[in-house]
Simulated assay, not measured.
Amino acid sequence: MSAALSAHVVVRRRAFTVDVAIDVAPGETVAIMGRSGAGKSTVLQAIAGLQPLDAGVIAIDGRVIDRTDHPRVRTEPMRRGIALLGQDARLFPHLSVRENVAFGPRAAGVAAAAARADADAWLARVGLPGVGDRRPAELSGGEQQRVAVARALAAKPRAVLLDEPLVALDAVTAAEIRTMLREALDGVTAVAVTHDAVDAAVLADRLLIVEEGRATQLGPVREVLATPATDVAARIAGLERVVGVASRGEWESRGWHLSSVVPFAGADGSALAAVFRAADVRIGDGPSGWDAIVRHLEPTATGVRVVADRGAAEIPVLAAAGLTPGDAVRFFVAPEHVRLVAVEPTVR
């Protein structure tokens, strides 16, 4: 079922041009993350054949299925061997669940009995044994997404594209579907667009960050989330990232001064990013820190996020009592919570 996927997608949009290259090894899952409107879904739509290329080339196992240069190649979406799963399960309402899952194999010429038996096996694999005779309307949203996964994989696609299939589900259901997807996609070539770093951590082998139509970082998921190369990647990872310079094994930037338990070994003056969690930032005097002005306060699941003109801190509600926009504060981060990372050129 798995195949190597190679794509260089160039699509001109009003605000900017999406220009992203991606290579996915057989059986590998690559997650794509970035801000809304960055071009992530455009990449998937182009690979699926639903968005025409303005330039570029797409190939599966070395066979070109889309190319703008001569000789022009344009393979219809249904002939690409690629399954696209989105937020909407898009099941056929007039067919039973079993017939929905069997639809792809039957369209490919598989005998009805064999296709139906395989459909039941897939339904059991995604956690829905015994529901084959039901109609989609009788299932919950999470169950319909499970059926959509079974239908896609039963057709034996050469690659699967996931366009935020969990975003419309509640947290508990999303967690269940995420676990099921990880198991179902084992050995399947896949590209997954998501806004949730948990999806990337659970489903993907590598993570690609896209910003305004360009790839800015690519690597193993853990590596990208631990050492974000841009502010966008840092926000995705739930981290603060501030660029400064190396100074005697520590870090400084326009009145900021931070140290780490692991000193930076580079030359003084070299570009250096300080990476830390807002939850590790404290207000008050500390061994290293910086002065800031409070802009606004945001509620969080565990307390309050104090957003300032320079950085942010996530603190308990009691600690935020009395703070108002315009207040001058002193932020600090203990050295054990700071990582100093050399600033590398972003992927282009």
Rank of each mutant, 00 (worst) to 15 (best):
M1E: 11
S2A: 13
L5F: 13
A15H: 02
V18S: 03
A21G: 12
G27Y: 11
G27I: 09
G27S: 06
A31S: 12
A31F: 14
A31W: 14
S36R: 03
K40A: 03
V43T: 07
L44S: 05
G49V: 06
L50F: 14
V64R: 01
D66M: 01
R74A: 13
R74Q: 14
E76S: 13
R79H: 14
R79T: 00
L84M: 15
Q87S: 11
A89Q: 11
R90W: 15
L91S: 06
L91V: 08
L95W: 12
S96R: 01
E99H: 00
V101L: 13
F103I: 04
A108D: 06
L123S: 08
A124T: 04
V126A: 00
G130I: 11
R134E: 12
A137H: 13
R146F: 14
A152D: 08
A159R: 03
V160Y: 09
L161Y: 08
D163F: 01
E164I: 04
A168Y: 14
A168V: 15
L169M: 11
A171G: 00
A175L: 12
A175R: 15
R178Q: 14
T179W: 11
M180Y: 08
E183V: 11
V188T: 14
V193N: 04
D196E: 12
D199N: 06
D199W: 11
L203V: 12
A204C: 00
L208I: 07
V210Y: 07
V210D: 07
E211I: 01
Q217R: 10
G219M: 12
R222S: 14
V224M: 12
A226V: 05
A226N: 10
A229Y: 07
A234L: 06
R235L: 13
G238V: 01
G238A: 05
G238F: 11
V243I: 15
R248L: 12
W251V: 10
L258R: 05
L258F: 15
L258V: 08
V262E: 14
F264P: 01
G266T: 07
G266K: 02
A267W: 05
L272K: 04
A274Q: 07
F276C: 03
V281G: 00
V281F: 01
R282S: 08
G284R: 07
D285A: 03
D285V: 00
S288E: 15
G289T: 07
G289V: 07
G289Q: 10
A292P: 08
I293L: 13
G303M: 02
V307R: 00
D309Y: 09
P316W: 06
L318Q: 14
A320V: 06
L323I: 01
V329Y: 01
F332H: 15
V333C: 03
E336K: 06
V341E: 09
A342D: 15
E344L: 12
